[in-house]
C-alpha cells in the first residue's frame, strides 16, 4: 500500500490551491518561512508565539538557474538516467524570496527575472511509501485559468 505524501511534513499544503506554510509572529507580525517556533528572529521583538499562515501562491522571479549535473546525496534523483531540472528564486508579496524547483517540463528558457510564477505541488521522488511531493514554481504564462495578481512583489 503506497500513498502520495509531502517529502517534508508541514512545509506546504496540498490540494486544489497549494501554498507554503509560514509562521507569523503574534507580537510583531513578521512572517517567516520555513515555519519557526520558540523565538522571533526580528532583533527588536521578543515574541515567542507564532500562528501558521499560508503564503501567497504567486510571486515574481528574483533569479533562476538549473542543475545540469545530478546533485549529490541526500538529493534523490527522480529518474534514471538523470534529467536536469530548473530552479527559481521567487519573491512573494510577503517580501520573502523562496527557492524551489521549476515545474516539470519547463527550462531556464521559459523564465526571466521579474516573471510571475505560481506554486504547484509535484512529485519529487518515489520511495517505499509511494510518491513524495514538493512545492515547485510554474510560470503563470502557462496557466490558463484567471487568477488574482500579487501586490507589492518586485
Amino acid at each position: 500500500m503506497t500513498a502520495t505524501t509531502p517529502a517534508i511534513e508541514g512545509w506546504f499544503t496540498t490540494g486544489e490551491a497549494p501554498a507554503l506554510i509560514g509562521s507569523r509572529c503574534t507580537t510583531c507580525s513578521t512572517v517567516f518561512f520555513p515555519r519557526t517556533e520558540g523565538f522571533c528572529r526580528n532583533p527588536t521583538c521578543d515574541g515567542e508565539e507564532f500562528s501558521d499562515t499560508e503564503l501567497s501562491r504567486r510571486g515574481r522571479v528574483w533569479s533562476y538557474t538549473d542543475a545540469q549535473y545530478q546533485p549529490p546525496a541526500p538529493y534523490i534523483p527522480a529518474t534514471d538516467p538523470y534529467v536536469p531540472f530548473a530552479l527559481a528564486a521567487v519573491e512573494l508579496p510577503e517580501g520573502i524570496v523562496v527557492l524551489g524547483q521549476v515545474a516539470d517540463g519547463f527550462t531556464v528558457n521559459d523564465i526571466k527575472v521579474g516573471d510571475e510564477m505560481e506554486l504547484v505541488v509535484e512529485t519529487l521522488f518515489v520511495d517505499e511509501t509511494g510518491e513524495r511531493t514538493i512545492w515547485r514554481w510554474k510560470p503563470t504564462t502557462w496557466i490558463t485559468e484567471p487568477a488574482e495578481m500579487p501586490g507589492g512583489a518586485s
Binding site: I8, S63, A67, P71, P74, Y75, F85, A89, L99, V113
Partner: peptide, 23 residues
C-alpha cells in the same frame, strides 16, 4: 535540506547571482 528537497548545489546559488547580473 537544500540538497534533499531542491537538489540545490553551491554552483546553483552562484548561478542565481550570475543570472541576475545578466537580466
Amino acid at each position: 535540506l537544500r540538497f534533499r528537497l531542491l537538489g540545490m548545489t553551491n554552483p546553483a546559488y552562484f548561478a542565481l547571482y550570475a543570472r541576475r547580473r545578466m537580466d
